[in-house]
């Protein structure tokens, strides 16, 4: 991940996010990378609640573009992402 400061994970077609993915996100977030998740499935949030990680800073600082509010076709640049971050439900 050398040199990468921001990563966008497109989860629009994902039905699930498993514990391996949660661990990956945790470690990635700990390493200082800005993370944006595009439309993660509802079970992602449920998994975080079950593991009692939803209020941990590693996951609080992940930008989440939820399904109802996302305008995916416009997300192309860092600046665009930032504007969407502001509109997201947290």
């Amino acid at each position: 991940m050398n040199g990468i400061t921001h990563i966008v994970l497109d989860l629009r077609k994902s039905k699930i996010v498993d514990s391996e993915a949660v661990i990956y996100l945790f470690n990635l977030s700990n390493s200082g990378v800005d993370i944006t998740l595009l439309q993660p499935p509802p079970v992602y949030f449920e998994a975080l609640r079950i593991l009692e990680l939803d209020r941990e800073p590693q996951f609080q600082r992940i930008n989440v573009v939820r399904r109802k509010t996302a305008k995916v076709s416009r997300i192309r640049t860092r600046s665009k992402l930032s504007s969407i971050d502001g509109a997201q439900e947290k």
Partner: peptide, 12 residues
């Protein structure tokens, strides 16, 4: 939603 829950359980 339940399909996703069961799928996640099996995947784990």
């Amino acid at each position: 939603d339940d399909a996703a829950r069961l799928t996640l359980a099996v995947t784990e």
